[in-house]
Design a protein around this nucleic acid. Structure first.
Lengths: 139, 139
DNA sequence: CCAATTGTAATTAAAACAATTACATTTAAC
DNA sequence: GTTAAATGTAATTGTTTTAATTACAATTGG
């Protein structure tokens, strides 16, 4: 199972959005997402760095949304918490006697970069608010 | 480093495309891609299943391209060798007392699926032939 | 027959990752 | 000011993935 961080982060953001204004602790969030409070807190730190949430330390501390759900795209969440590229180019040295295999690495990097952009563009089109509406729709 | 299989596979396909018609053994391909012959052979099996290459067993065996590079998109290579989705939804049971957290999993699956489609659509637009031209361009 | 190669299983080694434990720090409430 | 509850953060553990490797039966050209 891969990219769980992103899924967790979106889930956390959705829970926070459901009770905007209310400050929710990592224990409750962890129960909601079904993981460990420490995992949640680490994600919240990343989300905070991206200004997507605000956190309060100390007693009755916790987190709340940093801005309106309609102004938060999944791309921002992705950028905040996802450390890995979708396609990673193997960093080893290429072949010696190369038919342009020297360029291979460069060309693959371009493919990797453009793919990353395609993913981010797609996620940019989905806001947290849209997600909430879909979650509320009983399907 | 993630998704190396895809990068390896594209590299292998590029090498095969450079000498179309010629049958190249896993040893040579492995040297080109700088990995192990067995890794190459496993990838070739997947690529063969997708009809992207033909392999010949026995003495002087090896692989060659199955069709014209202009008819091979990176999407086909991706589909052939990539077992993992770009975004994987955490399979655990959701929260009991859910504000529609029951729907959360479904909604995230939709996001994961549409993202996968976005990646595949992007890769569909890049053919092996285009890649070869770019590799030959001395940059 | 023989040498070279694929096809494939099994094993090993390394890397990535989630989960957990532990604890110092912060802060509200009393 | 003390206390209880929470965050922030480091360190550790255990599991899962993954690439690499070894080994060998099956295939095939010469």
């Amino acid at each position: 199972m891969v990219n769980q961080q992103f899924t967790f982060a979106v889930h956390i953001m959705a829970v926070l959005a459901f009770s905007s204004d209310e400050v929710i602790g990592s224990r409750r969030l962890a129960a909601s997402v079904n993981t460990n409070p420490v995992v949640v807190r680490r994600l919240l730190l990343s989300l905070r760095a991206a200004r997507l949430v605000e956190t309060l330390a100390g007693r009755h501390g916790g987190a709340r949304l940093g801005k309106n759900p309609s102004r938060i795209s999944l791309m921002k969440i992705y950028d905040a918490v996802e450390p890995r590229p979708v396609i990673s180019v193997n960093g080893r040295k290429a072949l010696k006697r190369c038919h342009g295999s020297c360029n291979m690495k460069h060309v693959m990097s371009c493919v990797a970069d453009s793919t990353e952009r395609a993913v981010r563009k797609h996620l940019r089109g989905i806001t947290l608010a849209q997600l909430l509406r879909r979650i509320n729709t009983p399907r």
